[in-house]
């Protein structure tokens, strides 16, 4: 069975590949040290020496963008991993077994969803201090309900399917049914959800860093760069533009990829 790749998937995939590639590059090599300060080179406009110019401390914006994208992707990956693993586990157990525990956990997820994310992040930060690990934890918890709800519905649908009944009739235990029979059925909904979750996580991380709650200076982060660049918007527009464009590219790529995957699933 051959499926034609839809243009959304293709374009999204290409953009995502480009951004992930740039971030990987930034992890190993940047044209300049992204934290090296230079008093002489403050606010250089984009040139062949500094591709995207320099910022208020004379740091190379291109290098900072590369590393900032890496930080964004890494944090997003951790956040989605926490949300997806715990959410899938909770959703599977709830959907398959049902009962009062299911009711309780589903309501708990509703409570977490009802919480404004910035507020929860502020609570975590005020309890545990600022930092990357804290922001991953806070966002990770926030991402659990969406995965749990999605998986719960699928698992509940599978539970009553006759192939699960016939598996039970072969003497398959509950644990094995969940892992070997239901989990593979979730792939179709999980893959687009992970990509879209990734997208949301990047956006959330950027807003947290914008508010100064995420990655701490001097380490570069797209959100905090955007926040810093506001002050110099007229003097160094390339600074704001570079950080903003990087965020936009990341999100564009992953949202198109997610949307494309979901369309292919429905088709």
């Amino acid at each position: 069975m051959k499926q034609r790749l839809n243009p959304m998937l293709l374009f999204g995939g290409a953009v995502s590949l480009l951004t992930v590639g740039a971030a990987l590059l930034g992890a190993f090599w940047t044209p300049y040290n992204p934290t090296a300060v230079s008093a002489v080179e403050k606010f250089c406009p984009p040139s062949l020496v500094h591709l995207l110019g320099t910022d208020n401390f004379g740091r190379d914006v291109f290098s900072r963008v590369l590393q900032g994208m890496g930080a964004s992707l890494l944090i997003a990956a951790c956040v989605v991993a926490i949300g997806c693993l715990l959410g899938t586990a909770i959703g599977c157990l709830c959907g398959y077994f049902g009962g009062p525990a299911d009711f309780l956990l589903t309501r708990l997820c509703d409570v977490v969803t009802a919480f404004p994310s910035v507020l929860l992040a502020l609570v975590v930060v005020s309890l545990a201090g600022r930092g990357t690990a804290q922001i991953i934890l806070a966002l990770g918890v926030l991402f659990i309900p969406s995965f749990a709800r999605l998986v719960r519905g699928e698992a509940a649908r599978c539970r009553d399917a006759s192939y699960i009944q016939s598996a039970r009739l072969m003497g398959v235990s509950h644990g094995r049914i969940l892992l070997a029979h239901i989990l593979p059925n979730l792939r179709g909904v999980l893959v687009p959800a992970i990509v879209i979750g990734f997208n949301n996580a990047i956006l959330s991380e950027a807003s947290m860093s914008f508010l100064g709650l995420g990655v701490q200076p001097p380490f570069p982060s797209l959100g905090s760069m955007l926040s810093d660049s506001q002050t110099y918007l007229q003097r160094a527009p390339w600074y704001a533009f570079s950080a903003g464009a990087a965020i936009a590219l990341l999100i564009l790529g992953f949202s198109l990829l997610g949307e494309g995957l979901q369309r292919r699933r429905r088709a």
Binding site: A161, Y163, I164, S166, A167, L169, P184, N185
Partner: peptide
């Protein structure tokens, strides 16, 4: 045991 509906008795994935 074998069921009535062969189409739904096997796991599609």
């Amino acid at each position: 045991m074998v069921f009535q509906e062969p189409m739904t008795s096997l796991n599609p994935v």
